[in-house]
């Protein structure tokens, strides 16, 4: 009977089509965001995280580094995926005493020049403000997120994220100057986005992230008594 041939070719066709559809859906994509505040100023150091129903496991090859140079932490905001670790290299000629008293992760590291401190692993999601007990003004934020898809915005307020595929993702935006990490500060109350390759989504916040003048946050070259 012919009946046996029809399903066979149909199956082949279906496999081929599925294959095409599958590659279309699973192709890694790159999508961008630009964040402005209520005064239409680009927001730097904002963390954008996208949450997928099918996240991939933590990347172990990603190097997370919170360095100390010229008595400043770099970067100011460091997002990392839960379960990954950070190294704290000291590129200054002087000593730093890096600490956190956050409930998410408490630690202290006395770091001499070029000292190799063991990496610290962050198991709980949340915000970890980091200070230096020698240089009180030094401040950085580690933001432990529960997704592999995240990035921080640059001085133009832009960030590009690589995703395993297009589709719908939950979106969360955080910045050190936003008062509550659990509140949605986007103007339109955006909670979801549909990610497409090569697109840029502009998001406006309903708060002003004042950056102030140069002297507000720069380092005073003179220390104290």
């Amino acid at each position: 009977m012919n009946t046996s041939r029809i399903p066979l070719s149909f199956i082949f066709l279906a496999i081929t089509l599925l294959g095409i559809v599958e590659t279309t859906h699973a192709a890694p994509i790159s999508t961008s965001f630009t964040i402005f505040d209520a005064e239409n100023t680009p927001v730097k150091d904002a963390v954008i995280q996208l949450i997928s129903k099918n996240p991939t496991p933590p990347s172990t090859t990603r190097k997370n580094e919170l360095s100390q140079k010229d008595k400043q932490f770099t970067p100011f905001v460091l997002p990392i995926q839960r379960g990954t670790s950070i190294v704290f290299p000291n590129y200054d000629d002087i000593q730093h005493h890096v600490y956190s008293f956050s409930g998410i992760k408490k630690f202290e590291l006395k770091l001499s020049k070029d000292s190799k401190a063991n990496p610290i692993t962050f198991e709980k999601p949340g915000i970890v403000p980091v200070g230096c007990n020698i240089h009180d003004w030094m401040l950085a934020y580690i933001y432990v997120v529960d997704t592999p898809y995240f990035s921080t915005t640059n001085s133009n307020g832009s960030a590009t994220l690589s995703l395993p595929s297009d589709g719908e993702y939950l979106i969360k935006i955080w910045h050190p100057r936003l008062p509550d990490e659990n509140v949605n500060y986007t103007k339109e109350g955006i909670t979801k986005i549909v990610a497409k390759d090569g697109t840029t989504k502009v998001i406006a916040l309903n708060l002003t992230i004042s950056t102030g003048s140069d002297a507000d946050e720069d380092i005073d070259e003179f220390e104290d008594y």
């Binding site: 600490y99 008293f101 202290e108 200070g131 007990n133 220390e223």
Partner: peptide
């Protein structure tokens, strides 16, 4: 200068020193 455990930090100094009166002699 102990490691802070909250947003309040305390510190002690003992010996011979200047009180930190001004922003001139820094």
């Amino acid at each position: 200068k102990p490691i802070p455990t909250s947003n309040y930090h305390w510190e002690a100094k003992a010996g011979s020193f200047y009180p930190a009166l001004s922003f001139e002699n820094v």
